[in-house]
């Protein structure tokens, strides 16, 4: 077992129940949707896929934000890049999903290496502003792609072709997205507890000391930054397939902000938090408008105020986010 799990799992800890319960629900979600809402099942499966895509991007962002302690305010640009890696080749008749994936990963790798190498020279507010500036530059670069729809975006004629792994149907795409999320969770869990993760977390806890011990902190941060960008790019590939659309809007700073909210809502510095955060945020964004319309019809346009209030309250009362605040052990011991 120890070879499979990087750390001993406390089966009685509330966090473990929540994590396993969530995963169990996600595994049977399409069945559940079919059972509960019959013809409306498609809507729920698509919604859940969207949640998975947000979760994946947030799991990526969490590497640099949650474990590296660096607030990147531009990660949506990698999501956007991933979506165009599907849309543009498809426009030219290249439908291979594997090729889309390779293009997305290669482009995100190069961009992240450059952006990371420059912005990681700074910390704090400067880092936030530089990453935001790069994302805005890429946003406007996409807007200027007139031959690919400019700011109207670009529709994707058909979903990517992954051979035997068919994502043509909504359920197929959902399970692919869920599988990728599970892989990303497992990978980041192992990475965080590895020697690499130890240095990365130490660079957040005390960068000065970590350097003084002899660790080249910058390289570790850069590696984490690139890895986080790659996960976001994969999220972009999935997003373009879900919506059959790519657009500069996927790289808007508001989406970068939403990803930060997802990570913080779930719990900074926890492996599973981003998934919980994504479920919470998207569920609220979905439910609140209906709820407000039913209860206070006059204020239905103002549901976002309520969302803001909720996020505000969580941030105020739960310092470690929703998942991060759950007890991790019978007695307090660190299990990221």
């Amino acid at each position: 077992m120890s070879a499979l799990w990087p750390t001993a799992i406390d089966w009685r800890a509330p966090r473990t129940w929540v994590a396993l319960g969530t995963l169990a629900l996600l595994l049977v979600l399409p069945l559940l949707a079919e059972f509960v809402s019959g013809d409306g099942a498609d809507f729920w499966v698509k919604f859940a896929t969207r949640v998975m895509i947000y979760a994946l991007a947030a799991i990526g962002l969490n590497l640099i934000l949650g474990f590296g302690g660096l607030v990147s305010f531009g990660h949506a640009m990698y999501v956007m890049l991933g979506s165009y890696a599907v849309a543009i080749p498809t426009e030219h008749g290249i439908t291979s999903g594997w090729l889309h994936l390779v293009i997305a990963l290669a482009a995100a790798f190069v961009l992240a290496l450059v952006v990371g190498a420059i912005s990681l020279r700074t910390t704090g507010i400067a880092f936030i502003m530089i990453t935001l500036a790069f994302a805005q530059m890429l946003f406007f670069a996409a807007v200027s792609l007139k031959q690919y729809g400019g700011d109207d975006g670009l529709t994707v004629a058909a979903r990517s072709d992954f051979g035997v792994i068919s994502i043509a149907g909504h359920i197929g795409l959902y399970y692919v997205a869920l599988t990728v999320v599970l892989l990303a969770l497992y990978l980041s869990w192992r990475a965080v507890l590895s020697p690499f993760g130890l240095v990365l977390r130490a660079s957040k806890a005390n960068a000065r000391r970590t350097l003084a011990l002899g660790h080249p902190v910058f390289r570790f941060q850069l590696a984490a930054y690139v890895a986080s960008a790659l996960l976001c790019a994969v999220a972009g590939v999935l997003l373009a397939n879900l919506t059959q659309f790519a657009s500069p809007a996927y790289g808007a700073w508001t989406l970068s902000g939403e990803l930060i909210v997802v990570v913080i809502l779930g719990g900074l510095g926890t492996v599973f938090g981003p998934l919980i955060g994504a479920i919470l945020l998207l569920a609220l964004e979905e439910a609140l408008p209906t709820l407000v319309e039913a209860l206070l019809p006059a204020y239905k346009a103002n549901w976002m105020l309520l969302l803001g209030l909720f996020i505000f309250l969580i941030a105020l009362t739960l310092e470690r986010g929703v998942y991060g605040s759950l007890p991790e052990r019978a007695r307090g011991r660190q299990q990221p």
Binding site: R190, L193, S194, P195, H215, F220
Partner: peptide, 12 residues
């Protein structure tokens, strides 16, 4: 060996 990202640090 700090670039290792798979095996847990505590298992070394």
């Amino acid at each position: 060996g700090n670039t290792r990202f798979w095996g847990p640090a505590r298992q070394d």
